[in-house]
Amino acid sequence: MTRPPSTDRPLLRLCGIHKRFGDNHVLRGVDLDIAAREVVCLIGPSGSGKTTLLRCVNHLEVPTEGRAILEGELLGQYTHRGRLVPLPPRELAAQRSAIGMVFQHFNLFGHKTALENVIEAPTQVRGVSRKEAVGTATELLRRVGLADKADAYPRQLSGGQKQRVAIARALAMSPKLMLFDEPTSALDPEIVGEVLDVMRQLAADGMTMLVATHEMTFARDVADRVVFMDGGVIVEQGPPNQVLTAPTHERTKRFLARLL
């Protein structure tokens, strides 16, 4: 189910991303291009830098070095007197609103119902009228199969339901790109499927997705490209069949062998 990229310019371009936490060099120069409508799965052992890379895209972590570019626009930084300096919070916030993010631990707003979670950003950040936002949100909750849970608080939802609300919440901002940070890692095994189904549907609808995951079946079935990371660098990447079944690199082989 490979879909050819629609334009030559990538939707997202990551150039030479480094991230250091003190002495801990987590990302050691990552370059990655993602085309519009492409689904890229990031795999790799814990601590390989998958999560940090995702968080560097929308500047939840500020990269120590390197640039993230969305549709030709540099994210989180601008050139001032020949040097790259951080963008003011308001501008950064505007850029972030075009990138949806789904977290491992859902991070639903606990004091708001499912519906209120979904309409919060459109009404507060985009200034969409409440009526219009409720209309969109109701449709999104229906899409993730939770139309009947609109008035439920997160505490009353199962993990899978929470994650599906979180996906609807991110989609409510009509993002150009969706980042998934191990979206099923905190879920009971029998619930994982319902979240993956929603993500499958999203991919089929043409959403550009960057997914850090341990779900190899999902990566094989849905991804256009699988990227294997280890030690803060991309070790190898390619179509799922190639990377998952015939990896060329020793480290990839070892990682995949451990999973089977």
Binding site: A94, F103, F109, A170
Partner: peptide, 8 residues
Amino acid sequence: EASLALGM
């Protein structure tokens, strides 16, 4: 983090 990611 979720709030920031949504553009707040």
